[in-house]
């Protein structure tokens, strides 16, 4: 075996592997062109992503440095979003907070996607006791006011970011489990599942290789929708003083801090983090539908 044969063999394989990616891009372009709102949400998502990844290196001021001389300044060119009661630059704090809020949202959604998705698919596919147990767990969670439940979980487990992630995942569990259950249940008797049984697939393999890929597009939409909800939930918990603690920049805390100053006319302290929060939730909600169009092969005609 000579080394020179490797690139030769790799070249066609590489171009073959690139082809689907290329078609995915052209498909994405078509979807965006077809629906400008999706394009807008993708743009926003990219912006948030950049802020989360390299935000701390971009900001003009240190988000934690207080400067009492410049406290409570209105938005200006020097401080785009103004300064808070300790003279910290709100613009910088809003940008830096993106990473923390996104991390909480993404990890909680990823966690519930795996747990709720698997539990739901198993419940829908096997039925019987699996279904009953998963269903009743979901019902029990749904029986509580969800935000209060999240508060309770964080209070019980301890006031940390990890526990916010866990709490957010738990309160979203029924949504994922029920969706996955319904979708798996519909496909349980589909022809291709029967065919997979005939070709010697075990139940577990059918679940993972045949049913799961078909449910992914719908779960994607659900992920994107709950992502906005997760951000809101994390911010809400910090707003009431759970989870993230000051002076860490976080949208919920910033709104909470700013809320005391609204009556005295310093509106910018609460407004800008609040607006960013709203924009993030808005972006993820729109993104859901766009994502579905891209990952669903049936739409690719």
């Amino acid at each position: 075996m000579s080394a020179s044969t490797i690139p030769d063999a790799a070249a066609p394989a590489g171009s073959q592997r690139l082809a689907p990616i290329k078609s995915l891009f052209s498909h994405a372009r078509y979807i965006v062109g077809d629906n400008p709102v999706t394009g807008l949400s993708f743009g926003l998502f990219m912006l948030f992503l950049v802020c989360a990844l390299i935000g701390p290196y971009l900001v003009p001021h240190d988000p934690l440095a207080s400067d009492t001389m410049a406290a409570l300044q209105r938005p200006s060119l020097r401080h785009l979003f103004g300064t808070d009661q300790l003279g910290r630059d709100i613009f910088s704090r809003v940008i830096v907070a993106t990473r923390l809020d996104m991390t909480i949202a993404i990890s909680s959604v990823a966690l519930v996607f795996v747990l709720g998705g698997l539990a739901g698919i198993a419940a829908g596919f096997y039925g019987g006791w699996t279904d009953r147990i998963v269903g009743r767990i979901g019902d029990t969670i749904m029986a509580f006011p969800l935000f209060v439940l999240a508060m309770g979980i964080v209070a019980a487990l301890g006031n940390t970011v990890t526990n916010i992630v866990i709490a957010t995942a738990i309160i979203n569990f029924p949504l994922y489990a029920r969706l996955a259950r319904a979708e798996a249940n519909v496909r349980r008797e589909a022809g291709f599942v029967q065919a997979a049984r005939l070709t010697g697939n075990s139940d577990a393999r059918i679940l993972l290789t045949q049913i799961m890929p078909n449910i992914l597009p719908i779960m994607m939409v659900q992920m994107s929708l709950t992502m906005g909800y997760a951000i809101l939930n994390a911010a809400g918990l910090s707003f009431i003083g759970l989870g993230v603690r000051p002076p860490t920049p976080e949208w919920g805390i910033m709104v909470a801090e700013g809320s005391a100053f609204i009556v005295s006319g310093e509106w910018w302290i609460a407004l800008f983090p609040g607006l960013t929060l709203m924009l993030a939730v808005f972006c993820f909600n729109l993104l859901g539908d766009g994502l579905r169009d891209i990952v669903d092969p049936l739409r690719r005609t």
């Binding site: 022809g191 291709f192 029967q194 065919a195 997979a196 005939l198 045949q210 078909n214 049936l298």
Partner: peptide
């Protein structure tokens, strides 16, 4: 082995 009635339904769309 078996050949199914509906060729669309019996192939995994993905």
């Amino acid at each position: 082995q078996m050949v199914f009635q509906d060729p669309t339904d019996s192939l995994n769309p993905r």
